[in-house]
Design a protein around this nucleic acid. Structure first.
Length: 169
DNA sequence: CCCTGATTCGC
DNA sequence: GCGAATCAGG
């Protein structure tokens, strides 16, 4: 897939907004690897977000003039917001703002689909953490979703509440 | 094992 | 220019 202006803008927005390379790759859609994102980010000169592995050192070496550029990117990205349905992700955590929420459009096999809140509510979203391989949820929510069977005598045998209009078995 | 970004290098 | 493979680390 080609790096159109729009996709580059999306990449920049994500990168500067603090999304990880793989998150950006997922947001950009199928066929985009995190390597592609990182490679492109570097070629764009967007470089050097503190890598967990590379030292953001500068300890005694730097003579004071290191402003610790971690300050908020201020007004990040108006991007070129199209008037048409956007494929995914319009998130910009805005650093100090609220966390990026995972919407329906962000979901894929690798993302925890545990719902947070109620559908229809403005703030309804999904867990969004990395799903356990082979499961629809992250480890935390797998623990909730998949529980070991209790011994029969310990189990609550009352029938579950019946929803109105639900067919009876 | 999961993940992170960085770098290399054949295409 | 692109990105898979690899590296190096959490």
């Amino acid at each position: 897939m080609a790096w159109t202006d729009e996709r580059i803008a999306q990449l920049k927005a994500g990168w500067e907004g603090g999304m990880t390379a793989s998150q950006i790759a997922e947001a950009l859609g199928e066929g985009v690897s995190r390597n592609a994102v990182i490679g492109k980010a570097h070629r764009l000169g967007l470089e050097s977000r503190p890598s967990p592995v590379k030292g953001t050192e500068d300890v005694a070496a730097a003579p004071a003039a290191k402003p610790v550029a971690t300050a908020a990117p201020a007004a990040v990205v108006p991007v070129s917001v199209p008037t048409v349905p956007r494929p995914a992700v319009a998130k910009k955590p805005a650093r100090t703002g609220k966390a990026a929420r995972t919407t329906l459009l962000d979901l894929n096999e690798k993302i925890c689909k545990w719902p947070i809140g109620h559908p229809g509510d403005a703030d309804f979203h999904f867990c969004g953490k990395s799903a356990q391989a082979g499961f629809p949820y992250c480890t935390e929510h797998c623990l909730v979703a998949y529980q070991a069977q209790l011994p029969r005598r310990d189990r609550d045998r009352r029938p579950p509440p019946q929803m109105p209009g639900m067919p009876r078995r």
